[in-house]
Design a binder for these strands. Structure first.
Lengths: 144, 144
DNA sequence: ATTCTATGTTAGAATAAACTAACTTTTATA
DNA sequence: TATAAAAGTTAGTTTATTCTAACATAGAAT
């Protein structure tokens, strides 16, 4: 399946998050999440339907297909990893980190995501000090 | 001045890099760099001219204005910082890092750039091991 | 000087993604 | 049940960015 555009990735991710948070998803919910007009959403949904990534009851609820769910989960996981990385490693505040993660998730690939996860797993205030050179780790080198 | 689009940032950056590398810049040079059609370049240049970021001799060489140079340098600096970060911290190969940096440079802000620079300044193989948890730094914590 | 080739430009079309305005369907409520 | 409000859809427009094809100009080579 051809890679989704940045825009379509955002829509399918929104469907996933809204469904997760509210237990269901309608056009209006996506509107609140993404702050775009309803026709824009309808248009995006029609493309995602053609790609069999989701379906919708007439004038009603939106559901991800199995393959849509798989796709959305990947994007969402990447999003949360990037978010944590921005907050923890770069000290970004939640709101700003959220915005930047939203853009970065369409760029970062699996390899970088894995590296981020590995770093986060092991991250703590001491590692942070060393990373930013606020602590001399040379003695650690000598003993390492 | 309104923020440039991703696309226009790429064009002005290309003008900067080509000028730096060849001492001059023509449409064809940009074409080689960006791999887009000439009309696309001409179109982008016409917008950047309107914004007084560059000018061009008739059928000839392209020059950045003072403000264009300032803008381009900012983008380029951000690009090289991201590139180094991707190569050093995430072990990306040059070609791939280059591609991703090209996308990231339009997203990352000054604050993140500064953090990246600070981290890079201080980075070495030992810090890297600690970052990825390949070395136990607990003794460093206890003595810190 | 004329002609060939590089390079640069214009015109017109395609695509993606957004919008507003108007319309339809569904749901809630009086 | 009739009507009002909310939700969803359609039609048509706009903007940004790209493209191909056709054309214009400049510089090099004969």
């Amino acid at each position: 399946m051809k890679k989704l555009s940045r825009s379509l990735e955002n829509y399918i991710e929104a469907v996933f998050i809204v469904s997760k948070e509210y237990g269901k998803c309608r056009v209006t919910d996506i509107q609140k999440k993404l702050k775009v007009s309803k026709p824009s959403i309808v248009n995006a949904l029609s493309i995602l339907k053609k790609k069999k990534l989701l379906f919708q009851e007439k004038y009603g609820l939106i559901y991800l297909t199995e393959s849509g769910l798989k796709t959305a989960k990947k994007i969402y996981k990447k999003h949360t990893t990037i978010l944590k990385f921005l907050e923890n490693i770069f000290d970004l505040r939640a709101v700003k980190a959220e915005k930047i993660a939203c853009d970065m998730e369409h760029i970062i690939d699996k390899k970088i995501q894995n590296k981020m996860e590995k770093i986060l797993k092991n991250f703590n205030p001491e590692v942070k000090k060393i990373l930013y050179g606020e602590k001399d780790e040379t003695f650690a080198i000598k003993r390492g």
